[in-house]
């Protein structure tokens, strides 16, 4: 026998799950939405996505190496790549490159690495980047190109998104629900096709990368709350289906809110988190100054996650419910 015997505590076997597997699972799940956006926005979508991913990876590597001076890099675990893709999915496809790079720096630098890197960030890094861009560069961030101009980048014709139409009260100008569902409308790069995002979500659920609790509770809350408002005043408010299929709701519910690091740990907590996000989203959409509330809702609830974690404990085995 050549080896020295290893001693360690049990368990001596591992299920084989890894960070990489989960992160690449998310990336694969994002592929359908990427394909749709390539089909709809063409060259712009490609440039924005590639720039964003490359910039995020670069900043992750550079900060780990030169500022944190850590030996092992988290570059290959896929988390920075996800931040890049999600950031790209959250911006219009005609965003100039320099803005994307600033967004990536804020997302990785401020949103993630200042807190200690993977696993320590209180807010979803991609959201930090997006919200920073949205508040700092509102004009560029709210001019959405019209779908179908495959070879144009920053010089495209722009149009209002369905949510902006709703905000301004032009309910009759909304595209029909089917084209909203398929993605044939103006909007941020990755959020337009609810169908593609749902496909990705189904893949994540199948691979057990995420559980159903957060997406379902968000979508259900939005549906119910928007439905109540619609029933009260069908002329003033859009139908709940329109709410479900427009804006960043699907993208947020399936990919952003379910971010491991920033969402609660217990199923009970996840449902509370999801319901609050759904409620806040509709609240901002219907009564707030911004047409879209998804990113702010997730951002606010990210801040509440530690609190939810403290007060939502899983049911202990054999626990007798106090009467």
């Amino acid at each position: 026998m050549a080896n020295k015997l290893t001693v360690s505590l049990s368990p001596h076997v591992h299920g084989g799950d890894s960070i990489q597997r989960n992160m690449y699972g998310v990336l694969i799940a994002l592929v359908p939405a990427l394909l749709v956006s390539l089909y709809m926005f063409g060259l712009g979508a490609l440039i924005v996505t590639l720039t964003s991913v490359a910039a995020c990876l670069f900043f992750e590597w550079a900060i780990t190496k030169f500022i944190l001076k850590r030996g092992c890099s988290t570059l290959c675990d896929g988390s920075a790549a996800i931040t890049g893709v999600l950031l790209a999915f959250n911006v219009p496809s005609n965003l100039p490159i320099w803005l994307i790079i600033i967004g990536a720096l804020v997302a990785i630098g401020i949103g993630k690495m200042t807190f200690g890197g993977l696993g320590c960030n209180p807010f979803n890094p991609a959201l930090v980047g997006r919200i920073f861009l949205l508040i700092s560069f509102p004009v560029q961030m709210t001019t959405w190109p019209v779908a179908g101009q495959l070879l144009a980048y920053t010089d495209v014709n722009t149009a209002a998104t369905p949510l902006a139409l709703m905000q301004q009260g032009h309910l009759s100008d909304l595209p029909d629900t089917l084209s909203l569902f398929l993605g044939n409308n103006a909007g941020s790069l990755g959020e337009i096709s609810a169908l593609a995002l749902l496909l990705g979500g189904a893949y994540l659920l199948w691979k057990k990368v995420i559980t159903w609790h957060i997406p379902v509770s968000i979508l259900a809350t939005v549906f119910v709350f928007a439905g109540i408002m619609w029933m009260v005043d069908p002329a003033g408010y859009a139908s709940p289906l329109v709410h479900l299929f427009t804006g960043g709701l699907m993208l947020g519910a399936i990919f952003m809110a379910t971010d491991y690091v920033t969402s609660p740990m217990t199923h009970k907590g996840q449902i509370i988190y999801g319901v609050c996000i759904g409620f806040l989203t509709v609240l901002i959409r219907l009564f707030g100054a911004y047409p879209e509330g998804m990113s702010f809702a997730i951002f606010i609830m990210n801040a509440f996650t530690p609190l939810i974690n403290t007060y939502c404990k899983p049911k202990r085995f054999g626990e007798v419910v106090k009467k």
Binding site: N22, P314, R316
Partner: peptide, 17 residues
């Protein structure tokens, strides 16, 4: 590797811990 707070351990714990 760093904990990514995925909560898979919470789901796997047979004692609800």
């Amino acid at each position: 590797q760093p904990c990514i707070r995925c909560a898979k351990c919470v789901g796997a714990c047979p004692m609800g811990l």
